[in-house]
Amino acid sequence: MPTPLAVLYLFGGVIWLLMGGDLLIRGSISLSQKAGVPPLVVGLTVVAFGTSAPELVVSLRAALTGYPDLSIANVVGSNIANVLLVVGLPAIVYPMTCNQPGARKDAAVMVGVSVLFFALCTLGELGRPAGLALLAAFGLFLLYALQASMAEQSWEDESEEWERGLGLPRTSTMIATFLVLGTLALPLGADLLVRGAVSLADALGVASSVVGLTFVALGTSLPELATTLVAAFKREAALAVGNVIGSNMVNLLAIMGITAAVSPAPIPIPAGFLSLNLPLMVAAAATLAWAIHRRGVVGRRMGALLLASYLVFVVVLL
C-alpha cells in the first residue's frame, strides 16, 4: 500500500473510531437514563468505557489479526502521549491546576499501576493470567472510583450538560440506531487504523510497534488533546488532568487486561519496550504525580519540559 494511502487509512480509522465511540456513548447514556440508572454510575461505567472503546477495539483488532505488538504499543504510547502531550501542550497555554479532592491520591495510584504493569512486562509476555490479573485490579479501581465519586459533588458543567442533552437520542429507534451505528463504526475504524498502521510501518521500514507508539497512540489521544487545549484556552482546565489519570488507568488495566485475556497467543513485549518505552511511561506518570503532589499545578515550565520530552521520544523512535 502506498504511503499516502496508509496515512489516509490512519486518518479515516481515527475519525470513524471517534464517531463510533461518540455514538456508542450517547446511545448508552440515553439507554441508561431510560432504564433509570443513576447518572453517577453511568458516568463511571458507560461513559468511561465508551471513551476508551476506540483504544479497546484497536488493541483487540490488532491482537486478533496477528499484530499483538501493535496493541501494547498503542496502550503504552497512548499513556505516554496523555501525560507528555495532552497535559504538556495545554499547560504551556495556561497552567493547569489540579487541586480537586483526591487528585493526589489518584496520581499516586496511577504511578503504582504503571509500575505494576512494567513489572508484569518484565516477565517477557502478557498471557491470559496477566490479563486476568490486570482486570481484577481494574475491578478494584472501579470500586475505589465509585466510592470516591460518591463522596464528591458532581463536577459537571451545566452548559455541557445542556449540549449533551440535545445530542442524546430520544426515541427507542434512535437509541438503537446510535448503538448499532456506533458498534459498526468502531471495528471499521479499528480495521482501517490497524491496516494503515501496519502499511505505514512497512513503508517507513520501522516495526509496527513504533507506528503504534506514535501515530496510532496519537490518533486515539487526539480528542483528549483537543478538549484539553480548548479548556486551556478558556482557562478551565481543572478537570483535564483528572481525565488523563483516569484514561491511563483504563488503558493499562482494562484495555490491556481484556486484550491479554482474549488474545489467542500471549502478547509479546516488543524489543526496546523494557529499556525505553515502559520506563518512560512510568517516569512520565511519576513526574505528573510529583507536580500534582508538590504544587497542585502543572505550570508553563513543566508543560514545556513534558512537550519537549514527547518530541524527543518521537524523534528517537522514528
Binding site: 489516509l8 487509512y9 486518518f11 479515516g12 480509522g13 481515527v14 475519525i15 471499521l188 482501517l192
Partner: peptide, 9 residues
C-alpha cells in the same frame, strides 16, 4: 472500500 470509508471520514 478502505479508501471509500477513509474518505467518508
Amino acid at each position: 472500500l478502505g479508501v471509500g470509508f477513509s474518505l467518508a471520514a
